[in-house]
Design a protein around this nucleic acid. Structure first.
Lengths: 335, 335
DNA sequence: AATTTTCCTGCAACCGATTGCACTAGCTTC
DNA sequence: GAAGCTAGTGCAATCGGTTGCAGGAAAATT
């Protein structure tokens, strides 16, 4: 591998000039820069990241923080897609991608500590947004920068983030059902402490109120908790008027669909369903689920672009809203 | 942050001695080592990874290579679980996890090149096994070490890997059906160029032959190719004798189940299904799919442990077989 | 032509580790 | 007691970059 000294030698300048030329330092003449650049080309020069990080006290890597391990999370293809987007943007920006996970919060905190203090990683992407998250406190305390995927709960103005307009997405989903003639619509969620779910519900509520319709909601616990099926049956029998469901994730929609199709307790009961995330689940269902696509890969891509551009001294924060899109399939009927 | 010089000063030795003491170099007296170790403790010393990598010409990071982007892959929770296991083991070994993905092979190859030449990453985990994979060629050519998840096609003896015994898993699944009285069993796959699928089929075939039963197989293309549903219906009508399916992934099982339940073309047709991967899909189905759990997280964990232990000079290769387990649910009936 | 100003470039130190080699004790041995 | 060993430690160079500061050359001013 060619080093900066080789380049310098070939361009007949000193390593310091070469270094400055590479960073397009204004102190260097165009003519000199050109010489250096040509030398870089011919030698296929590429800087050593470790040497650079050492000298700069800052790694070129972006740390990616997944939520603390939890059955549901590591089952959700959403994160993998986001990772793909991040990876893509980082590749284009010549940055490395460093993963941080943990089976407990303590472990994750420690991982992050190591990445910052020993790895000199100073830029992170946090793949979720939760209330009172100690991880964010830690990052701030370590003087690291981060961009979030999802809208932050705290320091909303100071935190760069990329997100969908989940309130709008919730509204759109509700409006879609209303437009199809539904009046008794139920919102199915999982955990309202998550900003996404909360926002989508807000959007749903807004539309219902605008149309003077009743608000119904239902908490369906994660798959690993038993009895979910029973809860759905119960809800359905207690609310015979409900003709449509908005589910905060396709998976929930699928589960409700399964119950509708298979339980003798609710035989002949029909209901429209619209989900979120446009995941495999929605395609796999029959009838295929209408779902709101939120473009996770794009979310990741944009977040990474912001993270890569983060300077250690800037305190302005970029916010980016990625559009969503309703993918119509066959699970919503017109009444 | 304390540096090695601070430690050295406190222990009243030179940095070189401190360094040697930290690596438990036999040239250093126990007494001196003890002094250095105590100094490390009191200063909360932790080495700078970048400086270390620079001096050693080898990073402490493990590169993780995902397969080239492909709708199906980034939808499969398997990889996320494996990542979790890798991350866990790396955390314990104080190694960083570096991700490599690409939307094309060229991009992925380039990513890897960068990781090795600029990042000094010399140890990789490859999350898949494919025939004639140029990625592996590249890794070898770059003089990097790798451990695979899944059995390699080439250099089987020289390549460390961790895998399930997929042949056995295939046999077990088939035997499970045979034990439940099934005689006409069909094996459903996706892409036989993948070692996993091939092996599972082999196992299936073995059991069928041992029991003097006919071998039936069926290729169900990935979800994104249209017409899959039609293919299933066609197969079912052309093979009325089939009473059970082994599907190489739960997703495929789910898709077959959907057809069975919903198509009027095959009304009243019943069939048992056993899938692989014990993914959410299997739980979400109704009746819930019986599935073969292959413990992806454990696969990742073990692979990472091997990768971390890899020395640049050793040419012995560890192989590790992670057991599988049939998770009985309700999709297999006794005939 | 001499002096000042402006620009550009190079020297050398530094980032935080590792390691070959030389050196100094303390022991043994004759 | 001098010579020869061995074992333990430190010096200094090195890994491949970055950057403050000094200095030299060219351009501008008088």
């Amino acid at each position: 591998m060619a080093t900066i000294k080789d380049v310098a030698k070939l361009a007949k300048v000193s390593p310091s000039t070469a270094s400055r030329a590479m960073h397009d330092n204004p102190a260097i003449t165009q003519k000199t820069k050109a010489r250096v650049w040509k030398a870089m080309q011919t030698l296929h020069y590429a800087p050593d990241f470790n040497a650079q990080s050492l000298a700069n006290k800052r790694s070129n890597a972006i740390g990616v923080i997944l939520p603390v391990d939890h059955h549901e999370i590591f089952t959700n293809p959403f994160f993998l897609k986001v990772l793909r987007g991040i990876s893509e943007a980082c590749y284009q920006a010549q940055a490395m991608v460093n993963l941080a996970t943990g089976s407990s919060q303590a472990e994750l905190l420690n991982s992050i500590d190591i990445m910052v203090t020993q790895g000199m990683i100073r830029r992170f992407i946090v793949l979720y947004s939760e209330k009172d998250d100690p991880i964010l406190t830690k990052l701030r305390q370590l003087d690291a920068q981060y961009v979030m995927i999802g809208k932050p709960y705290q320091l909303v103005n100071e935190t760069p983030y990329v997100d969908n307009d989940n309130i709008l997405a919730g509204s759109d989903a509700a409006q879609f059902l209303v437009d199809h003639g539904h009046k008794n619509i139920c919102f199915v969620y999982n955990d309202l402490k998550k900003m996404v779910q909360n926002d989508r519900m807000l959007g749903y509520q807004r539309v219902m109120m605008d149309n003077q319709l009743l608000i119904n909601s239902f908490e369906l616990p994660a798959q690993e908790y038993p009895g979910g099926r029973q809860l759905v049956i119960q809800y359905l029998t207690q609310h015979p008027e409900i003709t449509a469901f908005i589910t905060v994730d396709d998976m929930l929609g699928l589960r409700i669909q399964q119950v509708l199709k298979s339980s003798t307790m609710v035989a002949d009961r029909e209901a429209s369903i619209i989900g979120f995330n446009n995941s495999v689940f929605s395609e796999a269902a029959h009838p295929a689920l209408t779902s709101v696509e939120i473009f996770p890969r794009r979310l990741g891509h944009e977040a990474a672009k912001i993270a890569v551009g983060l300077q250690s001294d800037d305190h302005l924060s970029t916010k980016l809203i990625v559009p969503h899109q309703i993918i119509e399939r066959h699970s919503v009927a017109t009444v």
